[in-house]
């Protein structure tokens, strides 16, 4: 260590900054977990991934620039770890996910039923399990974007930064990802109906 970094005042200031960083990062843990839960393939994977993310974040806190987006910074670490850890292997899909047009799911659900015309009720034909399962069937590249934007509330620009892809790619993957998700939901709704 050089003389400068041993200066007690400097060390105290650094410790304060670090504690503040850790507290701010921990305050975001719920939001980080919510996204991790659907990027990883299981709850256990998600928990491990979040722990690894925080462990790495706490160790490399100096590389975070104060005043920039900490939530996006944490998610960037998380998505990189997720890729590094080889957790991206897709569970072997039974069949290619159905990619229907945007109106397909609604048309299926609305047609299928007893003439319920209230759109807010039509959606209730889907169960929470249907949604979680359908989400897990969306291939990772598309799912990551859908999860960041639609569940994590990240903007297109933030998602682009986190995944290190252009904004245009975020938009096209989001669009396809949502369609694949709706296709998977339509399939599960059909299976239940039969």
């Amino acid at each position: 260590m050089d003389a400068e970094s041993q200066d007690p005042q400097r060390l105290a200031a650094e410790a304060r900054d670090r504690v503040r960083f850790e507290e701010e990062a921990l305050a975001l843990a719920d939001q980080v977990y919510r996204v991790a839960r659907h990027m990883a393939n299981s709850r256990e994977d998600a928990e491990e991934l979040v722990q690894e993310t925080y462990s790495r974040a706490f160790r490399s806190w100096r590389s975070f620039t104060p005043g920039t987006n900490l939530r996006a910074w944490l998610l960037r670490i998380l998505t990189n770890l997720n890729i590094d850890r080889g957790r991206r292997q897709q569970r072997a899909p039974q069949m290619q996910p159905l990619e229907a047009n945007d109106y397909y799911l609604y048309d299926r659900l609305a047609d299928d039923g007893d003439g319920i015309s209230d759109e807010d009720r039509v959606v209730e034909r889907l169960s929470q399990d249907d949604i979680v399962t359908a989400l897990s069937e969306v291939p990772h590249d598309f799912r990551d974007v859908v999860v960041l934007v639609d569940i994590g509330d990240f903007s297109y620009a933030e998602a682009a930064q986190i995944l290190d892809i252009p904004v245009g790619t975020v938009m096209s993957r989001l669009h396809r990802g949502r369609r694949i998700l709706k296709g998977a939901l339509a399939e599960s709704a059909l299976e239940e109906a039969t």
């Binding site: 719920d30 977990y33 839960r37 609604y106 209730e124 929470q128």
Partner: peptide, 17 residues
Amino acid sequence: FEESLRVYVRNAAAEQM
């Protein structure tokens, strides 16, 4: 429907740690 689906997906997918 799409609007309510988005809200529904968000809520269904929100899992507390």
